[in-house]
Design a protein around this nucleic acid. Structure first.
Lengths: 159, 159
DNA sequence: TTACGAATGATAATCTTTCCTAATCCGGTG
DNA sequence: CACCGGATTAGGAAAGATTATCATTCGTAA
């Protein structure tokens, strides 16, 4: 493991950033590995929103032997632990409904079930409260993540 | 094509529903095919939010020869045309950022680019305006879909 | 430094999308 | 109401993307 892991962030920032990352890993119960340092650093220095594959390409410049699976695995872990933010753009692994009324969704983090919800308060805000920088917003989706009633009681009993 | 396409919805409802579906297809420029009728009917009669694969299983009871690709293709078309609603539950085809500030996303329907946005108005509403039926909401994501500045000017020129 | 649990890399399995060709749908005609 | 022609669609297979598995290596705390 001889690559200079930190230089992605630039040499001044690298040492504090590495220490900060190590601390955040410890906080959420993840080991501080070179691969994770590089993945996180590459994402931090990305201005776009790269996909796992694109990020893998960037990371490989520093760690040529890193596996694509490692990138997928850790991005997903980072999202789960709240270290990074993920957006699903395409329809993959999607779930569908034909409910014709305007509604939003609640997704259970534990069992992945989906529930329809209605919220006049959110609908009232509308599109223009989210527009910025010339982006024309046509539709807004609000999604809540948490625990469905069934999983909530289950978690309580486990603890 | 001898299967009884409409009976999924029950015999009383079937005839009006079929005509209604044909009309909606015409409105959005899609041909009215047996496969689409069955897919849509199966989704309409589903109380859960089935995935493409699950729905394919249900549809196959009526059209045993229907291809999984057809189900994926048409669900995606239905979402695009607004006939049904889709939710991305897993991380597939996801895009990532390490922006540590609370933010939401704008997704361009044309080029799929992702932009960060901040909205005090939406953040102010908070979690409880979306809770219902005992679901414990821990986090809310607001996503806007539309046209980014670059694609907006492009569309204008095309038309 | 050691020992144990966790993470990586490689590959296989799974899921989703795309491509290509033959069949089907739709509007206008006879 | 059956038929024709152009455009759209379905099926099947192949490509692409994501996830799971497993032996080996690594990180961490004592």
């Amino acid at each position: 493991m001889s690559e200079n892991v930190d230089s992605i962030l630039g040499d001044q920032a690298s040492v504090p950033a590495a220490a900060e990352f190590a601390r955040r890993c410890r906080d959420v119960g993840l080991a501080d590995t070179p691969q994770r340092r590089v993945i996180f650093a590459a994402l931090t220095s990305s201005k776009d929103h790269p996909s796992a594959e694109v990020l893998h390409g960037r990371v490989k410049e520093r760690l040529p032997r890193i596996s694509l699976a490692t990138v997928y695995r850790n991005l997903s872990l980072f999202v789960e632990k709240g270290l990074v933010d993920g957006v699903a753009t395409a329809s993959s692994h999607a779930r569908f409904d034909a409910n014709p009324h305007k509604h939003h969704h609640l997704i259970c983090k534990s069992c992945a079930s989906v529930t329809d919800v209605y919220s006049a308060a959110y609908d009232a805000l509308g599109v223009d409260r989210l527009e910025s920088g010339g982006f024309e917003v046509q539709e807004i989706k609000v999604t809540g993540y948490g625990l469905c009633p069934r999983c909530k009681t289950k978690e309580t009993n486990d603890a």
